[in-house]
Nucleic acid binder design. Structure first.
Lengths: 364, 364
DNA sequence: TTGAAAGCGCTAACAG
DNA sequence: CTGTTAGCGCTTTCAA
């Protein structure tokens, strides 16, 4: 019997060495280690560390001291397994290198951190297929839910519906799946664009063009509505040739601008659905030798950092990006608490920041 | 006895309902669920799914079919607990909204994904204290190691040393802790800056200023060496007043530029340690009414996307950012395999991309 | 060929 | 006040 015991011990030691070599990392100290060192049971240690009143104050103090000396931290995997929660939020964005998304992610992260959650970022590269993969992978990773901004290709929502069916919290920001009953954070694009049109009018513009995004996206729709209504408010007729659609790439925006500049009766103002589009338009307008804003006034949307660096500086609509991320995270945690029925929609205000690209000194 | 059994069953059901309500998510199917459905043991299911030869082909086929029908996916928490590996890589960056870091992260993610790992991003906000917190939090999360770019404040490395002491893989990119024996990916700043100085000379510049970063950072040191050596190569004397240091913020860069432009004998060329600095310098130079490049030629470093959008377009050094991320991840996995002794240093080549901000048409 | 049992780290119900 | 036990989901001996 003693021999058997020794063999078991040896095996354990052997196994430990092997594991440690394999994982190339010293093992974290566990409750068991502490219990062995202190000569008490694992549960006593557990209770002491959780400040359970049943344990004597002295013992509690002693256990906590040793635990902190040994740098004990609870193993999140064990906790996760036990509590059936991973403390992970999946975040799906079209890409991570665009300032807008990076900034929203910062906001999400800030709130998540507070709550002891961390985020797993997955980018869809603006592709529906990759977005579906991302959802699957995140589910496999056992995230507790997902915060997403859909790709520009996304026109069917089965993969997101799957989340809802499984009662996993789902929150959209900026680009949402319309018709799905889930929480979302967006900005009031409609109103923002109306004020842009008014601003153009104030600066003497009469032929106002709009470079829009894919029609199935809510952001395209909202801003288009704002465009049409803004024109009406100003007493301008809608000219179909002044509304061009592009996917959200810089290349396509260049083509769209090209198309506008080649019109027999070219526009004297262009509004791009976001700053990336506006930057491309700016390059192309300059290439044609037109002056901004004298020949063509230009306005973007989202107010990227570089709006102030380009020449002329770009008038744009501020998106409260960091706040948007924070709100999205807030909705996420609400959803986690309140369950599937919860579907609050937050609409954030925007602000038109007027810079050189749209102000004609002769007018104002 | 039967009664007892029923009570136990009821308790289980009760507990399940409670949990499911609490977690607000349907439970994932487990091996146990499959085993119950198939009327075999858990271990048989496990073996079948792992294609263990001991299980009969028919049974294996049947089990695999049911498993995929039920959308079974192994619980990574359970696996992690068992194998003592989390498949998570911690990534620490000064911030996530700068294009450079976002792009490197994309590279890291691409390789990680391939290997079935996912990354947990933590930003230090260029603060040493937050960086230390990040390291601690990531260790607590049981990441298998860390890939980091140190904050600009970081001048002591105890928190990173802790990782090394615990034999956790650690890889630096771009900004490294010099003296630590760990793998790293950097660019050859020395050589790159030498070629910038040569380029300035070719364009008739004689008083070449350099806005540098914090002195303790390797990138500052390398580029400064390149600057000094470049001057020597070109037969220029080093003028101490033309070398100003700034922290890497836009505000400080503005001050530094201000300082240079107020010199009695002002520079006719400025090199900024990165594009953010160069953009600020550009704004300030314009504000003074100087022409770029005629009065002052300007060159940046890192080649951000917006280098082509500013006016004049900015000459800069391309950083292979995505590749840098991929290399960092590659080194990470090597380190994971080969253990603590491994400390390969990768130095990536750069390229000087010449644009309008530094080319004087009269000269070339 | 398959099942039972132990154990990864942790908590909580139960029993002293 | 403290220890024993069971179980979260999984793999892996050992036993049959």
């Amino acid at each position: 019997m003693k021999l058997l015991f020794e063999i078991v011990c040896m095996m354990k030691i052997y196994k430990f060495v092997e594991l440690s070599t394999l994982a190339m990392a010293k093992r974290h100290v566990s409750l068991k280690d502490l219990a062995a060192e202190l000569g008490v049971s694992v549960s006593t240690v557990s209770r002491a560390l959780n400040k359970h009143p049943d344990i004597s104050p002295q013992l509690t103090e002693k256990i906590q001291r040793i635990a902190s000396e040994r740098n004990y931290t609870p193993n999140p995997l064990a906790m996760g397994l036990l509590k059936a929660q991973t403390k992970m939020i999946g975040v799906i964005v079209p890409d991570i290198v665009t300032h807008f998304f990076a900034s929203v992610i910062s906001g999400i992260e800030a709130v998540a951190k507070e709550k002891g959650y961390f985020i797993v970022i997955s980018s869809s590269s603006e592709s529906l297929e990759k977005e579906k993969e991302s959802v699957d992978n995140l589910i496999k990773s056992r995230v507790e839910g997902i915060i997403a901004c859909i790709s520009q290709e996304t026109n069917e929502y089965s993969h997101f519906q799957k989340l809802v069916d499984n009662e996993l919290p789902l929150v959209f920001f900026d680009r949402v799946c319309e018709g799905m009953q889930v929480p979302s954070v967006t900005v009031d694009g409609h109103k923002a664009v109306q004020s842009i049109i008014q601003h153009f009018k104030d600066n003497g513009c009469r032929r106002i063009a709009y470079i829009s995004g894919p029609n199935h996206l809510n952001i395209s729709k909202n801003r288009k509505e704002g465009y049409l209504e803004g024109l009406k408010d100003c007493g301008f007729d809608f000219q179909p040739e002044l509304l061009v659609e592009c996917n959200l790439s810089a290349e396509d925006a260049t083509l769209a601008t090209h198309q506008l500049l080649n019109l027999k009766n070219k526009p004297d103002a262009i509004f791009g659905i976001n700053d990336t589009i506006a930057f491309s338009a700016m390059k192309e307008i300059k290439r044609y030798g037109y002056k901004i804003p004298e020949d063509i006034a230009l306005v973007g949307f989202t107010d990227e950092f570089h709006a102030t660096v380009v020449e002329p500086s770009l008038t744009s609509v501020t998106h409260p990006t960091f706040l948007m991320g924070k709100e999205a995270a807030r909705l996420f945690f609400h959803s986690l608490e309140k369950g599937p029925a919860y579907s609050e929609k937050v609409i954030l205000p925007t602000d038109l920041i007027i810079r050189s690209s749209s102000v004609r000194s002769g007018i104002i």
